[in-house]
Write a protein that binds this DNA or RNA. Sequence first.
RNA 1: GGGCGGAUAGCUCAGCCGGGAGAGCGCUGCCCUUACAAGGCAGAGGUCACAGGUUCGAUCCCUGUUCCGCCUACCA
Length: 960
Amino acid sequence: MTQPQAPDTLSQIPKSYSPQAAEDRWYETWSGEGFFAARDASDRPAFSIVIPPPNVTGSLHMGHALNATLQDVLVRWKRMAGFNALWLPGTDHAGIATQNVVEKQLAGEGTDRHRIGRAEFTTRVWKWKETSGGRIIRQLKRLGASCDWPRERFTMDEGLSRAVREVFVRLFEEGLVYRGSYIVNWCPRCHTALSDLEVEHEERKGKIYFVRYPAADGGPGVEVATTRPETMLGDAAVAVHPDDDRYKGKIGLVVSLPLTGRKIPVIADPAVSPEFGTGAVKVTPAHDPADFEIGRRHDLPEITVIGDDGRMTAEAGEAFAGLDRAECREKVAAALSAEGLLAAVQDHIHSVGHCYRCKTVVEPLVKDQWFVRVAPLAEPAIEAVESGRIRIVPRNWEKTYFEWMRNIRDWCISRQIWWGHRIPAWYCGDCHGGKIRLKGRWVEEPSGMAPATQPPSHPAAYAQLRAQGLSHERILAGMDTLIADRDVPAIVSREDNPACPSCGGKNVIQDPDVLDTWFSSALWPFSTLGWPDKTPALETFYPTSILVTGFDILFFWVARMIMMGLKFMGDVPFRDVYIHALVRDAEGRKMSKSKGNVIDPLDIVDKHGADAFRFTLAAMAAQGRDVKLSEERIEGYRNFANKIWNASRFVLMNVPPDLSTRNVSRETPWAGALADRWIASRLSAVAAEVNQALTDYRFNEAAAALYQFIWHEYCDWYIELAKISLFGEDAAAKQRTQTVLVMVLETTLRLLHPFMPFLTEEIWQALPPDCRTQAPRGGTIMLAPFPAPDGSLNDRPAEAAMSKLMEAIGALRMLRSEMSVPPSLEVAAVFSTRNKGVAALLDEHAGEIARLARCRPEIGVGLARPSKSAVQILPEMEVYLPLEGVVRIEDEIARLEKEIEKADKEVFGLAKKFENPDFVSKAPPEVVENGRARLAELAEKRRKIGEQAARLSEIGRESS
RNA sequence: GGGCGGAUAGCUCAGCCGGGAGAGCGCUGCCCUUACAAGGCAGAGGUCACAGGUUCGAUCCCUGUUCCGCCUACCA
């Protein structure tokens, strides 16, 4: 590969790591060299992830950053571990969102989509997509995402569109897609139907109105409760519960609907809850989902009083027609009040549905729409998770999944917008021309096309337009929307403009609606790999290995992918689903533009580097917890990156550039000094931990293990110890230390690479060439083998000995610090033990103790304590710091008294356990034994401190 | 209404199979010790929300309570 210029002399390595330059340089190299590419055919095992496609309109937010980081960690790990790893990127076309963006643009130009027409509009959207869309893709690259970019897909691509059409047609043929007239969620602003999932419910303070409906014969009527009095204008009945004794006599009564005088019946329906309100409910089938059901059961008329634009229709009556929903509510309430029919108004909290795109209050309306019959698809999808063919991690999301899947309702998939996959359904103008009503630009001047500045007008029947002399083509060209009567059959076809099966004519008109964006997203795991064609990629990478996503789209997307994957591929779309948390701000609030608490991931990358940012996200991704991101935390990991940088700098400054670890057998370098054996043992433990944690998707644990090892073992101890031989006279020891220093660093870099790709590559490239573990190709760390746990390096004795040594050093450091002995002052110190082995160990490592605790150590068995000295009592040794001429004795006495207090507490707590005879008899023997040993140790320590305190007080008295 | 999750150091959070409470940041003290002051060494700081229960033993398991999130639902 083309070698970017790595600093070649030590003096050139700057003292702190600056990420920017390295990041751009390495990303370009990796991607240019094709290191991210997976192979359609390979003898290596496949590992594949498809990215949850972000909206093409979107820009990278924290959620994306977390999502992408976790995927990249996994895919880089697997790639290094020898898999044919694919991470397939792409975006979705985000129908409503994208359409909104371009519509806003048009509004700025003083026009709108109806004036420019459908064809021109979609051209505009494509143009927008080409120039402004996909910003998020470029942002992902800044994060270091190792996606196979040449495979990038877009839901509106030719191939994916073909998949959409194939699926739609097949579902239709099987009766799983149908067109029907039902109540749907309608956004009066976006002017389209929404699926249930696209409605966000929010608790709102509102009012509940109690309204008297007098009997038609003038007798006592019924009182109903409603939160939406304006809908009463469309009431078709009043319903009560069949078993409600209060209303038994009223069933069948005809009441007079206030303000309209219309006569409506009182009916009985079990859906009514007797406990709520008055127990009698007004029924508005055209404007309430529950009422709609009741209406259909009782064959009530569906009187539409609110129109597509959220304004009252003519049906609402002269007094109200044209009013906005909210205005109308006031007017109706006032009118009822004036007539004395408003019994009461109370405050009431209820949840109100809002459009998830524009937050407008949705209006339930009865509309002709296309639906997917979901229940038959849901069944196998439930089974797949129950049986474990798909694992959801963490598991508690399974419950949510099942809950939703078992109560699933049909999915409304048609949208009344222009940007998206147009529904492949046509209606025959020749057979049903009278029942197909169209709106379009020709209506204003039936003799010809109206100027493009004219918005569409009233609907006209297709037959009528033809009769006025418009050609079929011309009608289509000017058509805006279409309403076909319920009994007009749809011709659903894989080919455009199919011939009518009954008349053979070609004058067919395509349904103007487009499909829900999620319909195409649901096919993503196989449509992106080439389906419906049988491609090698599909063969190799489906089912994908894992899906990484946030729980907010568990239903929107994950569930639907499972259904579609099982239906059309006959297999699950992925083996595992890893559900990660939401990223919140430091206060735990959801980040949102309106709250102004958004942290832009790219600002973080600019400021602290992609590696620090990625590491932070991984470290905070504990399963089942939200990620509360604060900049201080990121700074902490930026410091970590810098620490690694400087440790590496130290290594590079102290090893010859021609050093080779190429032919060093695994055992040799570790066979030497205690520190070498210890760090090797620790390294193998960390490698095991990281591998296991990643296997279990416990990213935070992998990150924590690396952090702990690098900073607190390699840097704090190993490097410090290494300095002794590096700066010493023993050439062999020096060389061995250099070897270990580099080998551990090099291995650690590979372990760390999935988390911090840029930094690790930058350093790895600067290592002596013959110290870099050979990658199968490319000469890059990202293709070098991922360190596997190596049990042969485990060295329990070395770890035990090292912790003794660390304890001894720690004890003296503690005394020094407590006694305020300056770090630069070399002191005398006595290490006394009863254990010969310990004495031998300390003696052997007197040099290390001397350096790391800055002292002249005297080591031995049963050494006398210096008369005026501070002491630290450890299980197997006592450490004395002679105080003569160094500090005041009183300070040490005070310190010891505090220690005595602490030790007493501990002894007391533990001793209490043994007072209970059941503990000794019932607890496992090893637990009891362990307790006994600890108790003995503590008691001994307490005794010795006491003695020492007494002695010092005595001396103190004598000398004063 | 149903469901899920949380409550552990000043802050943000780890804590797998019940058996000696951890990290990061912040704070305090001493140090520019030839990799790093974005650093080193050391330290203080916790009734593991509350009340019961199971157990020899509970931060961990069970029940209930309080508070806080979130998801879901056609009680108008």
